[in-house]
Design a protein around this nucleic acid. Sequence first.
DNA 1: CCGAAACCATTGGACATCCCAATGAATGCC
DNA 2: GGCATTCATTGGGATGTCCAATGGTTTCGG
Lengths: 150, 150
Amino acid sequence: MAQSDPLPAAGALARLQTLPSWLAGRVAARGHSLVADAIAGEGLKLHHHAVLAAVADGGPLAQADLVRRLGFDAKDVVLMVNHLERAGLVVREPDPRDRRKNAVTVTPSGRGKLERCARLADEANERLLAPLDPEERRTLMSLLARVHEG
Amino acid sequence: MAQSDPLPAAGALARLQTLPSWLAGRVAARGHSLVADAIAGEGLKLHHHAVLAAVADGGPLAQADLVRRLGFDAKDVVLMVNHLERAGLVVREPDPRDRRKNAVTVTPSGRGKLERCARLADEANERLLAPLDPEERRTLMSLLARVHEG
DNA sequence: CCGAAACCATTGGACATCCCAATGAATGCC
DNA sequence: GGCATTCATTGGGATGTCCAATGGTTTCGG
């Protein structure tokens, strides 16, 4: 009876699961999970980490700047800055040059937290890419970057 | 003043955004968006497509089988099968050999929908990988597969 | 044969994420 | 001096993921 499988839909699921979009989704999910677990002990989520990094980079930043740089929703930025401020990692001050804005600044504690989280994130990515050697990792990153920019 | 940037946290955001997990997340998000948009016109979401493909592959399947094969939550499978059944793409029948189970089967209409969606998903992935030539695509897939399996 | 344990589909709800709309205060432009 | 724009904030809706509880059914051990 094994007539070489003439059915048109044979292996439909397998076909789906070898799609680049599916594979990238699985890898991304695993990467997200690894990094999220890694920095969870520091009390931060991925988006908090990104906000903290952006603030550390750019000196005093208005929240609207964070919205633009990170592509997050303004509402969510409010909540994240709330969280970071309560944790003493950033400070919200009124901008004297434009009273609409909040000047968000990193605290020394925030810098320390950022460095620890960056290291943890690096280690998590090390685990993610464990199956690949350095040359292969560079190739993967280069290809992903080109897909992303395209 | 340009003292070669001795600050420890300089470029923290950029560093974050060159992490494999971040890059994979962006590519995955774009792939998801492309495929979701592509099959949205057929009235299906990605998970519906996966369920439909699994049912088409495995002949009559119990919903619990779908839970195991796809890793979805049982509740969500119920909702997806509801949707697919209302659209006339699958049929739910009581399994005569085990009255606890529903035997879920694809309809001819469901097979047609599945083929169209599979083609649309392929085209979307073609767009996703447009920046890469065939050789590079194979390399990317191979590397992603190894990261995924590791 | 019978009761305990496991399995099945379904329902309800918690929780986080993502996106959009509306508000009040403040600024810049003409 | 008005008027459109920007800012931070609040509220809410849509979606996705996950866990718990239920009632019906089968299986297995004794």
